[in-house]
Every structure is written in structure tokens, then in C-alpha cells.
Design a protein around this nucleic acid. Structure first.
Length: 470
RNA sequence: GGCGACGUAGCCAAGUGGUAAGGCAGAGGUCUGCAAAACCUCCAUCGUGGGUUCGAUUCCCGCCGUCGCCUCCA
């Protein structure tokens, strides 16, 4: 089977066929570390994580994610606080990695920082200069869009109209550029400003150049997949193509994959709109990381917006529990027939449906639909008995395969492991057990109520009481 | 204004030219001492007006609505 991914450039599904046999090289735009990333950002990072996990089923994957650690807001904050760049960004980089872990997002192979690739950026700008697509103004270097005929292909916009037609929101006189749509490769700075002394003069890099320089340094001049949020299509990725291809004369990226936004209250979640929430915010408010990961990753197809609401988070949590509880039920299986009975065909059918949906542009919501259909079907059987050993083995494997991309079960385990009863609660639970042994239902019910008021829900199962923090 | 996306049950959300997965919520059952969990049953004709077609929710056009990009942005 072949994974097909939607390519923004051609606006069509495209087979993932690595340029190097068996080896997919992917670059994903990472955070600008001037503040804590919000969960809208993590929607994209989870999409990329799911993609990377699915690719790893079949390919060796080299995944690079940049950390933008030099940028206007960072410089502004650092200057205001009299910190150097590294001091300013270190806490936000730490926070980013913490949040990745909380969401069970696999680490990329490389996290290049813009500040560590200044030399490569300068070199790339010099190549562009040699190619005749740049010009200097007062020490700054700009890219001349008019010199790149393919400009605008990715965003599908006619380059001429992009800025000229922006309804007066762009101040065309702000920069000393030949054309408003030209963009800065290198920004000259004064001696007292944060910058680097380079052959280009003292200055700092423009935003777009870092991704071209770092991706080419770590993945080569042509690689397979480049991801980001849809808001990166223009101008960021459009400019990356212009920079990279003008410098190398080669095709930059095979497939451009972009994820839609997370919405809240109908709008895009964004720092600039002030309608954002961070992982620590939500966890402190009681949101479960497993539910957040499910909502962000499987709540909707990655190219469609996801709405963040209390209801959608609750529904995600219920879905996670349904999946996790089913795993627990399967895990409780006791060997019985030594595999004499063949595995249930529904399990294989579900695996095939799951894989087909994932291969079809990473349709995780559809894939999970197949999973839940199987869960209901097998729960029915389990209500009446147990599984055969062969089916059990197949199911254990299937559940592991599903969660290999879904990635919620380790989070559930972590959440439940972190739960504990106070000594008081534990004592109440013991008293209730004793009451039940004497069939004192009134006392049993009263104690269940007591625990409920303390946030502990208790269920009675054939094997005894089972509690859970609610 | 330009470019693009979307509009499926109370909510969320897949999907297909031949009468619509799944999750949440709700109703009624089975089970249970009672609950919970699980299971069973019920709950949509796919924004709107046309067109193409034997047949459209699925293709085309108009309209209405929502959102995104065009400026830093996942």
C-alpha cells in the first residue's frame, strides 16, 4: 500500500515516494521561541507527529524541526530585559520540549536553532547574490521576487496582487524595497543592536532564510516532505521555495503538507487574537493530555479546522476512555484454547480499514471509526465470554499498531498512574468492601456517595471495586 | 478587493454518483442488590436555488453563511 498525501503545491494527492529509496526526509516548521506555544500550534505538531509515526511504519525517517530563536519579538523582549538571546529563549525552548512530552510527541532527529546556522544562511544569501536575485539597500539584502518566475505557485496567488491588493494594510513605504513584495534576506542592524558581524555586514537574518538554510544543511537541497500550518503557506513557504530553488536550481520539496487551524469560539486560535490556551493552562484546568492529543490529532481530518470547546474535549476524552477500556478488557484475557480457534476475521478487516484510511491522506478520524466499530462488535462477544487466544494475540498487536500512531495510551497510563487515593479515601473504600461482603447495600451506597463527593468514582465489577478519579 | 477552504443529526465528525462511518449527548431496554461499564433498539436525506445524469449529499453554476491567507503567525 502507498501513502498518499495532499500536496499544497499541486493541490492533489501525491504518493509518498522518497527520493532516496526507503528514506523519507521531512522538515517541519517549529516554534518561534518568544513565548510558550499554544495548543493551536500543537495541533500542527501533532499532525506532523502522526505523519512521522505513520511514515516510520514503512520508511526510515529523518525528521528535522527548526527552532526560531532570533526574531523581532525575541529581540524586543531580550533587549527590554537586558538578556542575551540565549537567556531569553532558553526557558521557552524548555517549555516547548516539556509540552511535547506531555502530548507524547516523538522527538525530531534534529532541532536546529537559527542562531547556530548564521554561517549557512550567509552562504546561501551569497549564492543568491551570485545568482542575481538579490539587491542591497543600506546594508540589508532583499530578494527580488521579479527574478523568480515561479513565485506564487504554492500559495496560488498572483504575486502582483498579493500585497498591492491588501486593502491598504501594508505600508509599502516601510522598507527600502524595489517592490513591496520583495522580502528581506538579511537585515542590517546598528552596532548596539543584537546581530552578527558577517561578510554581508553586521545584521541579522530575515525569517525565511533560516528554514531554507537549515533544511538544506540537514536534509539536502531536495527532500521529500515539508510541513507547517496553513498560515505558513504565504509568505513563509512561498519564500522558502524562491530562495532555495533560485540558489540551487533544483526542485526544493516533493510534497508540501499543511494542517488547518485550531479554532476556538469560531476563530483561529492565535496569540495575536488573545484567544489562546497553553498546555499548562489546560492541564491545570483539568484537561487530560490524552484527550487533548486525541482532539487535536483525531478530532477532525488534519486539513479541516478543529473546534476547541468543552464539549469537544469531553467527547475526545470519552473516545480515549472507550479505546483504553477496551485495551484493558483485552489485556484481562486468560489463555484458554491454545490458539486452536483461528483469529476473528473482523480484526484483520479492521486493520486493513485502518491502514487504508491512514494511507488516504492520513485520515485518522475515519480510521478510528473502523476501530470503534470493531470495539463495539467485540465487546458484544466479550459480554458473552472470552476471545480465542489467536484473536487475543491479533488484538493485542492491532491495538499496539493503532496507538503507535494515535499515541494516547501511554498518556492514559501516565494519567492513571498519577492518580492515587488518600489514606482516608482508601479507608472508606475498605469499609465499603466490608459492607458489601455483608450485603449491607445501604451502607455500600452511602460510602459510594461519600467517595463521589471527594472526586472518586467507584464501580463494582465481578472482581471487586474499581475506582477512578473523576 | 484578490486568493483559498468549508457548510452532513442536539453537538463533533467521516464518507460515497445509486438513498449516509464513528464519537459525545438524549430516550427506551438487557445485565446489575442499585449504579457504573458493556451490549441492544431509537434519533439526519447531507446550507439554499438551479443544471448535468436513469439517478447527486457526492459533478457544474448562482446565492446565503462561516473561516483562513493576503502583515508576525502552527
Amino acid at each position: 500500500m502507498t501513502l498518499r498525501l495532499h500536496d499544497t503545491l499541486t493541490r492533489a494527492l501525491r504518493d509518498v515516494a522518497p527520493l532516496q529509496a526507503g528514506h523519507v526526509r521531512m522538515y517541519t516548521c517549529g516554534p518561534t521561541v518568544y513565548a510558550r506555544s499554544h495548543i493551536g500550534n500543537f495541533r500542527t505538531f501533532i499532525f506532523e507527529d502522526v505523519l512521522r509515526r505513520w511514515l516510520e511504519r514503512r520508511f526510515r525517517v529523518t525528521h528535522v524541526m527548526n527552532l526560531t530563536d532570533v526574531e523581532d519579538k525575541i529581540i524586543r523582549n531580550a533587549t527590554a530585559a537586558s538578556r542575551d538571546l540565549g537567556e531569553e529563549t532558553a526557558p521557552w525552548i524548555d517549555a516547548f520540549f516539556e509540552d511535547l512530552d506531555v502530548l507524547n510527541i516523538r522527538r525530531a532527529d534534529h532541532y536546529p536553532r537559527a542562531t547556530e546556522y548564521i554561517a549557512q544562511m550567509v552562504e546561501l544569501i551569497e549564492r543568491l547574490g551570485a545568482a542575481g536575485v538579490t539587491y542591497d539597500t543600506d546594508g540589508s539584502v532583499y530578494y527580488r521576487i521579479a527574478a523568480f518566475p515561479g513565485y506564487g505557485r504554492l500559495s496560488g496567488a498572483r504575486a502582483e496582487g498579493l500585497i498591492a491588493g491588501a486593502g491598504g494594510r501594508v505600508d509599502a513605504d516601510e522598507y527600502d524595497k524595489e517592490s513591496p513584495r520583495d522580502f528581506a534576506l538579511w537585515k542590517a542592524v546598528r552596532a548596539d543592536e543584537i546581530g552578527w558581524d558577517t561578510p554581508l555586514g553586521r545584521g541579522r537574518p530575515g525569517w525565511h532564510i533560516e528554514c531554507s538554510a537549515m533544511s538544506m544543511a540537514l536534509l539536502g537541497e531536495s527532500f521529500d516532505i515539508h510541513c507547517g500550518g496553513v498560515d505558513n503557506i504565504f509568505p513563509h513557504h512561498e519564500n522558502e521555495i524562491a530562495q532555495s530553488e533560485a540558489a540551487t536550481g533544483r526542485s526544493f520539496v516533493q510534497t508540501w503538507a499543511h494542517s488547518a487551524h485550531l479554532r476556538i469560539g469560531g476563530d483561529k486560535m492565535a496569540k495575536s487574537l488573545g484567544n489562546f490556551a497553553t498546555m499548562p493552562d489546560l492541564v491545570a484546568a483539568g484537561a487530560r493530555p490524552s484527550a487533548l492529543r486525541y482532539l487535536l490529532g483525531a478530532g477532525a481530518h488534519y486539513r479541516k479546522p478543529v473546534n476547541y470547546t468543552d464539549a469537544s474535549l469531553h467527547a475526545a476524552a470519552e473516545s480515549v476512555d472507550r479505546f483504553a477500556d477496551f485495551r484493558a478488557r483485552v489485556d484481562a484475557h486468560a489463555p484458554q484454547d491454545g490458539g486452536q480457534v483461528a483469529a476473528d476475521p473482523r480484526i484483520t478487516q479492521t486493520r486493513e480499514a485502518f491502514e487504508a484510511a491512514m494511507d488516504d491522506d492520513l485520515n485518522l478520524p475515519e480510521a478510528m471509526g473502523a476501530v470503534f466499530t470493531l470495539i463495539r462488535s467485540l465487546n458484544r462477544d466479550l459480554d458473552g465470554g472470552d476471545l480465542g487466544d489467536a484473536s487475543h494475540a491479533e488484538l493485542v498487536a492491532l491495538i499496539a499498531e493503532i496507538d503507535d500512531v494515535l499515541g494516547v495510551l501511554p498518556l492514559v497510563d501516565r494519567e492513571r498512574l498519577g492518580e492515587s487515593l488518600t489514606a482516608d479515601d482508601d479507608a472508606v473504600l475498605a469499609r465499603r468492601e466490608a459492607a458489601r461482603a455483608e450485603r449491607d447495600w445501604a451502607e455500600s451506597d452511602r460510602l459510594r456517595e461519600v467517595l463521589a463527593e471527594r472526586g472518586v468514582s467507584v464501580e463494582d465489577t465481578p472482581s471487586g471495586q474499581r475506582w477512578r478519579r473523576s
